[in-house]
Nucleic acid binder design. Sequence first.
DNA 1: CTCTGGGGTTGACACGTTTTAATGACATGA
DNA 2: TCATGTCATTAAAACGTGTCAACCCCAGAG
Lengths: 343, 343
Amino acid sequence: MSRTVGIKQVAERAGVSPGTVSNVLNRPERVAEATRARVEQAIRELGFVRNGSASTLRAGHSSTLGLMVLDLANPFFTDVARGVEDIASERGYAVLLASSAESAEREQRNLRVFAEQRVRGVLLTPFGDDGETADRLRERNVPVVLLDHPTPRANQCSVAVDDVAGGELAVRELLDGGARTLAFVTGPMVLRQCADRRRGALRALRAAGLGREAMREVPVGAMNARSGQEAARRLLETGPPLPDAIFCANDLLALGVLRVLLQAGIKVPTDVALIGYDDIEFSAAAAVPLSSVRQPTYQLGRIATELLLEECDESAGHAHQQVMFQPELVVRESSRSASGGPS
Amino acid sequence: MSRTVGIKQVAERAGVSPGTVSNVLNRPERVAEATRARVEQAIRELGFVRNGSASTLRAGHSSTLGLMVLDLANPFFTDVARGVEDIASERGYAVLLASSAESAEREQRNLRVFAEQRVRGVLLTPFGDDGETADRLRERNVPVVLLDHPTPRANQCSVAVDDVAGGELAVRELLDGGARTLAFVTGPMVLRQCADRRRGALRALRAAGLGREAMREVPVGAMNARSGQEAARRLLETGPPLPDAIFCANDLLALGVLRVLLQAGIKVPTDVALIGYDDIEFSAAAAVPLSSVRQPTYQLGRIATELLLEECDESAGHAHQQVMFQPELVVRESSRSASGGPS
DNA sequence: CTCTGGGGTTGACACGTTTTAATGACATGA
DNA sequence: TCATGTCATTAAAACGTGTCAACCCCAGAG
């Protein structure tokens, strides 16, 4: 029935004061070789583990970062998370991982948990794009880096990929394949990712001399495969004249769409061309290997974390940065038929 | 330059003592209607957020659960995590999510973070199977529920799926399809999942009157698609007589294998049959829809969390349970050719 | 009138750590 | 011998919350 072992018990065992133990833990250089060894042995013998809450309470903030993504089930975000964790743990930070599951309510709830835990900083892929959420955090002196979300404002860091350019790349590819009528399968427009990719798509249309009526929009509630299937069914039901090509705001959506199309006996890309976004690992292995728009996912997480830690480290004068990567088109089989597509 | 707002500031503003504010937060029924309203308003006005570290410090434990999985990039585990988060947040608990990335060192490091944060309990998919890790946690009075890991020991809870039965199902399916020589693509044998599925596979072989030499084992370092590709390349390189069928310990491995086979012009299932494990969402959408072994993934997370919370709630006399689900075979196209397979 | 009881509220302490100013030990130089 | 300085260690005071015994007030009973 060993009582909880704290810095005090360690001190007693090593024959020093609690303050010295604390010094061994935090500024080992200030303590004499011999005593340090004694303390360290006592720590091992007692199996002491520092009480993080007490440290946090005393310091006013923890050594934990909060990472909030839109959807943990999306390989895109787990890749980002890998990048975040790698850097964070390298620097001695732990990561509190949470998913807003594309719901404003869950986002707020999770941010409250972050706040209660007094996380040192937050990496946020916001659900809405108003920036209000981030502002509220900054008011509380919590550094925030926007993740996969650009910002025009100079008072905060952000790391993002140019989704307008990406949308343009995708649709240009479809148009180059010969498509003249399109469908855009997308999640809710409050998601900046969707809105920007749509803008890019429209831009590509315009550049090709087509009006926006050439692209039918098929909005669904979430950015996952299930919603993709729903979208495809809706497309099939509402009219036989299928579009020449479909642009999905997301690879998950695209995989769902693809599945339903194939089940309905529709050939991809011969009957309908298809392109997704994110280039998740599974896209290359799909029934018809999926063309997509690749982003430097892992890098996104790394860079964002580095910026955040730099901002947390008040010693260094930190200049806010808005990093913007360029996406890259990955052409596989789904986007244009071997013949060059319908014309 | 507002000073940090704590229970004390709230008390002052509401004209009550700090103790009362604490009561409003933790035992609202003990405080009179009118004062409660006043306090709650003060809380809103000041934007007060309870300091979790202080609570934790005082209480001796947080209201946070630790969840450690083998691989966050594996949809199997993100599904489990969804189940965990749903139950946890329903009961007012937060979830500290960590991935051991199939590395003993990372597992230990993350568990140390859990320990420092004084998590209330841990859901653990252990990397090794010796049970020592779980024991050490229990010594510290941290309730542990083993997740996706059965235990014969009556002194702890566990939730698992019968992987031996699953391995048997998978291989029997391949044998029923006419296969006589097999390959087993698997992660390291320290992973219980791999070891058990292998045992099941061997049992199926025996039942069919075949010796263990009928199944060639192809071990790889990790349970992901990249490793699957590596395994397939190794199979292709080492000899033209390919096995009739391949059993992968994991859908991720199977997707990797599938990809390389198809690239090499090998027809699945005509030339080689293939079956995976987990039935992740992407398997159905693969180039050749993947046969697999389905587990009640989401349920796994839910039940495990319920058990853990029950164990944390010391008031209720908690009886340790070992829950074991049965897996289910999902036959798609990859496991047997339309003709009934080679014979 | 006093006594009793109970609901509502308070004040003070404890939780485990970090930090700061103070203390002690010891050597050096005057 | 004493002043001075350096280095290692210590004692004590926070940090913000939860708990618990004590307290106050008022109603109802005697």
